[in-house]
Protein backbone atom coordinates (compact mmCIF):
# COMPACT_ATOMS: atom_id res chain seq x y z
CA UNK A 1 0.00 0.00 0.00
CA UNK A 2 2.85 2.36 0.90
CA UNK A 3 4.42 1.80 -2.49
CA UNK A 4 1.23 2.57 -4.37
CA UNK A 5 0.70 5.66 -2.22
CA UNK A 6 4.16 6.95 -3.17
CA UNK A 7 3.62 6.26 -6.87
CA UNK A 8 0.16 7.83 -6.79
CA UNK A 9 1.47 10.91 -4.97
CA UNK A 10 4.26 11.31 -7.55
CA UNK A 11 1.74 11.29 -10.42
CA UNK A 12 -0.59 13.70 -8.59
CA UNK A 13 2.35 15.97 -7.71
CA UNK A 14 3.49 16.15 -11.30
CA UNK A 15 0.09 17.40 -12.50
CA UNK A 16 -0.74 19.68 -9.54
CA UNK A 17 2.85 21.00 -9.37
CA UNK A 18 2.81 21.90 -13.06
CA UNK A 19 -0.60 23.60 -12.77
CA UNK A 20 0.76 25.63 -9.87
CA UNK A 21 3.93 26.43 -11.81
CA UNK A 22 1.90 27.78 -14.73
CA UNK A 23 -0.26 30.04 -12.56
CA UNK A 24 2.81 31.06 -10.59
CA UNK A 25 4.80 31.96 -13.69
CA UNK A 26 1.95 34.15 -14.95
CA UNK A 27 0.75 35.85 -11.78
CA UNK A 28 3.04 35.26 -8.78
CA UNK A 29 6.68 35.19 -9.86
CA UNK A 30 6.54 38.53 -11.74
CA UNK A 31 5.61 40.22 -8.44
CA UNK A 32 8.51 38.52 -6.62
CA UNK A 33 10.95 39.59 -9.34
CA UNK A 34 9.65 43.16 -9.27
CA UNK A 35 10.01 43.40 -5.48
CA UNK A 36 13.51 41.90 -5.56
CA UNK A 37 14.82 44.87 -7.48
CA UNK A 38 14.28 46.97 -4.36
CA UNK A 39 15.75 44.32 -2.07
CA UNK A 40 19.09 44.41 -3.84
CA UNK A 41 19.07 48.18 -3.98
CA UNK A 42 19.07 48.68 -0.21
CA UNK A 43 21.71 46.49 1.44
CA UNK A 44 22.84 49.02 4.11
CA UNK A 45 19.31 49.69 5.25
CA UNK A 46 18.59 45.99 5.53
CA UNK A 47 21.74 45.39 7.55
CA UNK A 48 21.08 48.30 9.89
CA UNK A 49 17.51 47.38 10.72
CA UNK A 50 17.93 43.66 11.02
CA UNK A 51 19.44 43.57 14.50
CA UNK A 52 18.29 40.49 16.35
CA UNK A 53 17.45 38.83 13.07
CA UNK A 54 19.31 35.58 13.57
CA UNK A 55 18.73 34.31 10.07
CA UNK A 56 21.11 35.87 7.59
CA UNK A 57 21.84 34.84 4.07
CA UNK A 58 25.30 34.31 2.81
CA UNK A 59 25.60 35.99 -0.56
CA UNK A 60 28.33 33.55 -1.57
CA UNK A 61 26.04 30.54 -1.30
CA UNK A 62 24.94 28.87 -4.49
CA UNK A 63 21.75 30.15 -6.04
CA UNK A 64 20.17 29.26 -9.36
CA UNK A 65 20.88 31.87 -12.01
CA UNK A 66 17.89 33.93 -13.06
CA UNK A 67 15.96 32.62 -16.02
CA UNK A 68 15.80 29.00 -17.04
CA UNK A 69 17.70 27.60 -14.04
CA UNK A 70 15.70 29.51 -11.46
CA UNK A 71 12.38 28.58 -13.05
CA UNK A 72 13.54 24.96 -13.26
CA UNK A 73 14.33 24.78 -9.55
CA UNK A 74 11.05 26.50 -8.75
CA UNK A 75 9.10 23.92 -10.76
CA UNK A 76 11.03 21.12 -9.03
CA UNK A 77 10.30 22.64 -5.62
CA UNK A 78 6.62 23.02 -6.53
CA UNK A 79 6.37 19.36 -7.58
CA UNK A 80 8.19 18.20 -4.43
CA UNK A 81 5.91 20.29 -2.24
CA UNK A 82 2.88 18.92 -4.08
CA UNK A 83 4.22 15.41 -3.42
CA UNK A 84 4.48 16.16 0.29
CA UNK A 85 0.97 17.60 0.41
CA UNK A 86 -0.43 14.68 -1.63
CA UNK A 87 1.10 12.12 0.78
CA UNK A 88 -0.41 13.91 3.77
CA UNK A 89 -3.77 14.20 1.99
CA UNK A 90 -3.77 10.50 1.02
CA UNK A 91 -3.04 9.53 4.62
CA UNK A 92 -5.88 11.76 5.86
CA UNK A 93 -8.32 10.31 3.31
CA UNK A 94 -7.56 6.71 4.28
CA UNK A 95 -7.74 7.39 8.02
CA UNK A 96 -11.06 9.20 7.54
CA UNK A 97 -12.36 6.32 5.47
CA UNK A 98 -11.32 3.71 8.04
CA UNK A 99 -12.32 5.60 11.20
CA UNK A 100 -15.16 7.86 10.10
CA UNK A 101 -16.48 6.00 7.03
CA UNK A 102 -15.96 8.93 4.68
CA UNK A 103 -16.03 7.74 1.09
CA UNK A 104 -13.10 8.55 -1.17
CA UNK A 105 -13.97 10.21 -4.49
CA UNK A 106 -12.85 13.13 -6.63
CA UNK A 107 -15.82 15.13 -5.37
CA UNK A 108 -14.98 14.58 -1.71
CA UNK A 109 -11.39 15.24 -2.74
CA UNK A 110 -12.36 18.83 -3.54
CA UNK A 111 -13.50 19.25 0.06
CA UNK A 112 -10.22 17.73 1.23
CA UNK A 113 -8.44 20.19 -1.03
CA UNK A 114 -10.35 23.08 0.52
CA UNK A 115 -9.46 21.73 3.98
CA UNK A 116 -5.80 21.71 2.91
CA UNK A 117 -6.10 25.25 1.53
CA UNK A 118 -7.58 26.42 4.83
CA UNK A 119 -4.96 24.57 6.89
CA UNK A 120 -1.80 25.33 4.95
CA UNK A 121 -2.59 28.70 3.38
CA UNK A 122 -5.65 30.65 4.55
CA UNK A 123 -5.30 30.43 8.33
CA UNK A 124 -1.48 30.92 8.44
CA UNK A 125 -1.80 33.79 5.92
CA UNK A 126 -4.44 35.54 8.05
CA UNK A 127 -1.79 35.92 10.76
CA UNK A 128 1.32 36.27 8.61
CA UNK A 129 0.32 37.80 5.30
CA UNK A 130 2.16 36.44 2.25
CA UNK A 131 5.39 38.40 1.99
CA UNK A 132 7.26 39.76 -0.97
CA UNK A 133 11.04 40.17 -0.83
CA UNK A 134 12.27 43.35 0.92
CA UNK A 135 9.31 43.44 3.32
CA UNK A 136 10.02 43.87 7.00
CA UNK A 137 9.11 40.86 9.13
CA UNK A 138 9.70 39.48 12.62
CA UNK A 139 12.53 37.00 13.21
CA UNK A 140 12.17 33.92 11.04
CA UNK A 141 12.09 31.45 13.98
CA UNK A 142 9.08 33.12 15.59
CA UNK A 143 7.19 33.25 12.31
CA UNK A 144 7.94 29.62 11.52
CA UNK A 145 6.80 28.52 14.99
CA UNK A 146 3.55 30.44 14.64
CA UNK A 147 3.06 29.03 11.15
CA UNK A 148 3.40 25.48 12.54
CA UNK A 149 1.03 26.31 15.38
CA UNK A 150 -1.57 27.69 12.94
CA UNK A 151 -1.26 24.64 10.65
CA UNK A 152 -1.43 22.11 13.50
CA UNK A 153 -4.34 23.86 15.20
CA UNK A 154 -6.35 24.11 11.98
CA UNK A 155 -5.61 20.48 11.14
CA UNK A 156 -6.72 19.38 14.61
CA UNK A 157 -9.86 21.51 14.36
CA UNK A 158 -10.81 19.79 11.09
CA UNK A 159 -9.94 16.37 12.57
CA UNK A 160 -12.16 17.12 15.61
CA UNK A 161 -15.08 17.96 13.34
CA UNK A 162 -14.63 14.73 11.37
CA UNK A 163 -13.78 12.21 14.07
CA UNK A 164 -15.27 13.35 17.36
CA UNK A 165 -18.89 12.41 18.11
CA UNK A 166 -21.76 14.83 18.75
CA UNK A 167 -21.16 17.76 21.02
CA UNK A 168 -17.45 16.97 21.54
CA UNK A 169 -16.91 18.39 18.05
CA UNK A 170 -16.99 21.70 19.90
CA UNK A 171 -13.34 21.09 20.84
CA UNK A 172 -12.62 22.44 17.36
CA UNK A 173 -13.36 25.92 18.68
CA UNK A 174 -10.40 25.67 21.07
CA UNK A 175 -8.11 24.71 18.18
CA UNK A 176 -9.46 27.50 16.00
CA UNK A 177 -8.82 30.04 18.76
CA UNK A 178 -5.38 28.80 19.86
CA UNK A 179 -3.17 30.53 17.24
CA UNK A 180 -4.96 33.85 17.86
CA UNK A 181 -4.61 33.60 21.64
CA UNK A 182 -0.86 33.14 21.14
CA UNK A 183 -0.81 35.81 18.41
CA UNK A 184 1.30 35.95 15.26
CA UNK A 185 4.70 37.64 15.67
CA UNK A 186 5.03 41.02 14.02
CA UNK A 187 8.10 43.20 13.50
CA UNK A 188 8.58 46.44 15.44
CA UNK A 189 8.51 48.37 12.20
CA UNK A 190 6.02 47.20 9.62
CA UNK A 191 5.99 47.77 5.89
CA UNK A 192 9.05 48.67 3.87
CA UNK A 193 12.20 50.46 4.93
CA UNK A 194 13.25 51.58 1.51
CA UNK A 195 14.39 55.24 1.77
CA UNK A 196 12.56 56.30 -1.40
CA UNK A 197 8.84 57.00 -0.81
CA UNK A 198 8.08 56.27 -4.46
CA UNK A 199 9.65 52.84 -4.06
CA UNK A 200 7.68 52.20 -0.88
CA UNK A 201 4.46 53.05 -2.71
CA UNK A 202 5.39 50.62 -5.49
CA UNK A 203 6.23 47.90 -2.98
CA UNK A 204 2.96 48.40 -1.12
CA UNK A 205 1.09 48.03 -4.41
CA UNK A 206 3.04 44.85 -5.18
CA UNK A 207 2.35 43.50 -1.70
CA UNK A 208 -1.44 43.78 -2.03
CA UNK A 209 -1.30 42.26 -5.53
CA UNK A 210 0.79 39.44 -4.10
CA UNK A 211 -1.84 38.55 -1.48
CA UNK A 212 -4.53 38.14 -4.17
CA UNK A 213 -2.18 36.32 -6.55
CA UNK A 214 -1.05 33.77 -3.94
CA UNK A 215 -4.59 33.31 -2.60
CA UNK A 216 -5.82 32.43 -6.10
CA UNK A 217 -2.81 30.30 -7.06
CA UNK A 218 -2.97 28.30 -3.82
CA UNK A 219 -6.76 27.90 -4.04
CA UNK A 220 -6.52 26.51 -7.55
CA UNK A 221 -3.57 24.31 -6.57
CA UNK A 222 -5.44 22.77 -3.63
CA UNK A 223 -8.65 22.12 -5.60
CA UNK A 224 -6.64 20.35 -8.32
CA UNK A 225 -4.57 18.46 -5.74
CA UNK A 226 -7.61 17.43 -3.69
CA UNK A 227 -9.82 16.22 -6.53
CA UNK A 228 -6.92 14.41 -8.21
CA UNK A 229 -5.91 12.75 -4.93
CA UNK A 230 -9.50 11.61 -4.33
CA UNK A 231 -9.78 10.20 -7.84
CA UNK A 232 -6.41 8.42 -7.79
CA UNK A 233 -6.91 7.04 -4.26
CA UNK A 234 -10.25 5.51 -5.25
CA UNK A 235 -9.14 4.20 -8.61
CA UNK A 236 -5.57 2.98 -8.05
CA UNK A 237 -4.84 2.32 -4.38
CA UNK A 238 -6.16 -0.93 -2.97
CA UNK A 239 -6.29 -1.20 0.79
Amino acid sequence: MFRSMVLAALAIALVAGLVLSAVQALHVSPIIYAAEVFEIAQPEVTAAFHDGHSHTHNDDAWAPTDGFERVGFTILSNVLSAFGFAMVLLACMFVARDKAELTISWLNGIFWGLAGYLTFFVVPALGLSPEIPSMEAAAIEGRQSWWFLAVMATGLAIASLIFLPGITKGVALVFIAAPWIVGAPHPETTGFLHPDTQAVATLEGLQSQFIYATALANGLFWIVLGSLTGYVAKRFIKA
Partner: peptide, 12 residues
Protein backbone atom coordinates in the same frame (compact mmCIF):
# COMPACT_ATOMS: atom_id res chain seq x y z
CA UNK B 1 16.65 26.78 -4.81
CA UNK B 2 13.12 26.79 -3.38
CA UNK B 3 12.88 30.58 -2.88
CA UNK B 4 9.97 31.35 -5.23
CA UNK B 5 8.06 28.25 -4.10
CA UNK B 6 8.40 29.30 -0.45
CA UNK B 7 7.08 32.77 -1.22
CA UNK B 8 4.24 31.39 -3.34
CA UNK B 9 3.03 29.04 -0.59
CA UNK B 10 3.44 31.91 1.90
CA UNK B 11 5.86 29.84 3.98
CA UNK B 12 7.75 32.18 6.33
Amino acid sequence: AAHDTRHSFAFP
